[in-house]
């Protein structure tokens, strides 16, 4: 057991036994080291399966929406990026912060088992983290990787290791900020010609199977009934019938989360076809920064986002489309 995990489990035990909270949201051990699932713990007994390791990439904040409906006080363990999602959910009145204890926890970047497999290691039986190294054992032998080679995309370009909210923190080792620029991928797309860019997105989006994992995992997608599920809306679709429909779903989704997306990276993490959805969101974030001044969704749990507020300093969007107009 690593030190951070030990402290987390200890704290969870205290909170449950003292009845300070009714349940704890965390991660539960799977069949392997690399497949923990999010889970709700209500007794000390259940905590024996609690796990916190390099594969706990899942953002737990959205589970609060469903769990709070059932009542009671909840303690939730949030990584730095997850704390931003939490604030955004509070701001949008999806989560009552008074019913939640946020325990912000150390994160050294989470790993991507699929990237490990892409490196040609299959039949993985075990993975072990050793500082900046990841050691993977499989039926075909064992292999060693530098952590950076096998980090989740969202962690490679982690926006910040600062906690946006924390009632308590559990941090043992210093968390280094990543040196990677999260907008570099967007800039690459911006440099393309319109035709190239269209071809890029057409290729990516044509893989979409409309499984809705990206939408359902997204902490900004908390509509009680999504327009795409609403048969009365005339837009309900279960399968993309043509290229237009594939694109429409993603463009509408990107617009709907614009200004509210914290860039937690979950959409890209869960996509079974590895569509780089974060690039769409980051394009919006980049443009919002340019047109309305730097803004990070979820930094605070109140206030308005630039797209629903007007100030005289705002750039004129029509002019902005044509040139280098910026926030004054």
């Amino acid at each position: 057991m690593n030190k951070v995990e030990e402290l987390i489990v200890k704290r969870a035990r205290e909170l449950l036994s003292s009845k300070e909270v009714d349940k704890v949201i965390g991660w539960k051990k799977g069949e392997f080291y690399f497949d923990p699932s999010p889970a709700v713990f209500t007794s000390e007994e259940e905590l024996k399966d609690f796990v916190y390791n390099g594969f706990c990439g899942a953002n737990l904040s959205k589970y609060l929406v469903q769990e709070l409906k059932k009542g009671g006080k909840i303690a939730v363990f949030l990584k730095p990026c997850d704390t931003y999602s939490f604030n955004e959910l509070v701001k949008e009145h999806r989560v009552d912060k008074n019913a939640v204890k946020v325990i912000a926890i150390e994160c050294q970047g989470k790993l991507d088992i699929e990237k490990i497999k892409e490196k040609g290691v299959s039949a993985v039986t075990e993975t072990e983290e050793n500082g900046e190294e990841v050691i993977v054992s499989s039926l075909y032998g064992s292999a060693k990787f530098r952590k950076e080679e096998v980090l989740l995309e969202k962690c490679l370009t982690c926006k910040s290791k600062k906690f946006a909210v924390a009632d308590e923190t559990i941090v043992v080792n210093e968390m280094k900020e990543t040196a990677n620029d999260r907008f570099s991928g967007v800039e690459e797309l911006e440099r393309m010609s319109e035709e190239e860019r269209f071809a890029f997105w057409k290729g990516e989006l044509s893989k979409c199977i409309r499984c809705n994992a990206c939408r359902n995992v997204c902490p900004a997608c908390t509509c009680v009934k999504c327009v795409f599920d609403n048969n009365a809306s005339g837009m309900a679709t279960k399968a993309p019938a043509d290229t237009f429909e594939e694109q429409m779903f993603h463009i509408i989704r990107a617009y709907h989360v614009a200004g509210r997306c914290t860039d937690c990276g979950e959409c890209s993490r869960v996509c079974p076809q590895h569509i780089p959805l974060h690039l769409l969101n980051r394009k919006f974030i980049k443009d919002i920064n340019r047109l309305y001044g730097d803004f990070q969704a979820g930094e605070a749990d109140e206030g308005k986002n630039p797209l629903i507020e007007y100030t005289e300093k705002d750039a004129d969007p029509t002019a902005a489309v044509n040139g280098e107009v910026r926030h004054a």
Binding site: A58, Y63, R210, C211, N212, R215, N216, V270
Partner: peptide, 16 residues
């Protein structure tokens, strides 16, 4: 109940 708790109700498992 416990088994389904973390399920996102996406269709990934059924579509693949």
């Amino acid at each position: 109940q416990k088994l389904s708790e973390a399920c996102l109700a996406c269709g990934t498992c059924t579509f693949v």
